[in-house]
Simulated scan of single mutants.
Amino acid sequence: MAITDRRTSSLSDGGTDATRGSTVPVLYDGVSPFPRDESEGRNRVPRWQMAVTAVVVAFPFIALAAALWLLWGSVVGPTDVVLAVVLYCLTGLGVTVGFHRGLTHGSFTPNRPVKIAMAIAGSMSFQGDVITWVATHRRHHAYTDRPGDPHSPFRFGTSLTGELRGLVHAHVGWLFTADITPPARYAPDLLADSDLRAVSRAFPWLCVLSLAVPFGAGWAVGGTWSAALTALIWAGLVRVALLQHVTWSVNSLCHMIGRRPFRTRRHDRATNLWPLALLSFGESWHNLHHADPTCARHGVDRGQIDPTAAVIRLLERTGWVHDVRWPVAGRLETRRQA
């Protein structure tokens, strides 16, 4: 049985298979497993790419083991905590402000330095290069919880077993499939941007930088290899692991658990999950986001904290971004569940 409220809306659900360029409607009843994609056998992900993905996904376990070893008989230092919090915020907001609300959905228009800075910061989160990230997320919105969605938790149907398998798939399993999202179809605007192409090519080096910064800062403050290594573990590996799993939880948990105060497209089960709001910088107000994807603020109701929207507001006041799409009361009310 499904965990979410199954109310659906009368909003159009598209109905065509844009992934393959077909105009034939994809029939889906909302409860069955997704049909097998016959193209997966032809579009093989290179083994080296799978190996790199495996290393990135293994970060939480590497970080946990290293952290436990370092903490044996000691405590984490204030430098490690400060570095971890600062880098978590910078890289996390790079994803939420930059990759997501800015570049994927066009919730605002940044000036060139802000655009480049956001793309660099988001790339340092170890979640993929900016162009691939945006293309995958746009495809997720085009086919939310229907065949074609790269990481729907309902891929294996809505039985208890199917949803448990789907939860694992939506959280991390989709990273290991041969289901390739073509940037030329979903992110042609980013491919046409020379700045973003350069940042995308630099992704491996930005990941190295993401770990080198805490290592160097730990050495500079503590003056020892131990201080540098401790900073690398906490402000590097643990920070990356936590941010990854918070982002992946929006893909998985925020389609299965939580409230759905706003109507979304048919079969779209995006939810609001308040416990993740602060760690995700407001991204877990996911139901509103799927009801109004270009809106710059996701936490629109009283008490819904949305740090990403606060940063966008600050950037707007400084003149560094413009054309911000803030919530419109009348538009929101037309999308509320009866």
Rank of each mutant, 00 (worst) to 15 (best):
L229F: 13
L237N: 09
H137D: 07
T247N: 13
G173Y: 09
A119W: 02
R263H: 07
S252D: 12
C295Q: 10
A58L: 14
V134E: 03
H151F: 08
G218K: 05
M50S: 06
L288Y: 14
A2F: 06
G30M: 00
D5F: 07
R47Y: 05
V57N: 04
S39V: 12
I3P: 00
C207I: 13
H151T: 05
I62K: 00
T271F: 08
A202G: 14
G122V: 05
K115Q: 12
S39H: 13
V213S: 11
Q127M: 13
W326Q: 08
G162C: 04
R297N: 02
V26D: 06
A202Q: 11
D17G: 02
T158M: 01
V81Y: 04
V56T: 15
V114D: 06
C89V: 15
L273K: 13
D17K: 00
T23F: 12
T23P: 00
I116E: 09
A187L: 03
E316S: 15
I233M: 06
T91E: 03
P293S: 13
G162Y: 04
T247P: 02
R266N: 05
A58Q: 01
R263E: 06
E316R: 10
V86E: 12
A65V: 09
R165E: 10
L232E: 01
R265Y: 01
A66D: 01
F108R: 01
P188I: 11
A18C: 11
T161L: 15
H267T: 06
I257H: 02
L11I: 04
V82D: 11
L253Q: 02
T177E: 07
G330C: 03
A142D: 03
P293E: 04
R101Y: 08
D149I: 02
F126P: 07
A270N: 02
T177V: 06
R155Y: 11
S200Q: 06
G73R: 12
R331P: 01
G299H: 01
P147W: 04
V31D: 04
T23N: 09
C207K: 08
H105L: 10
M124H: 08
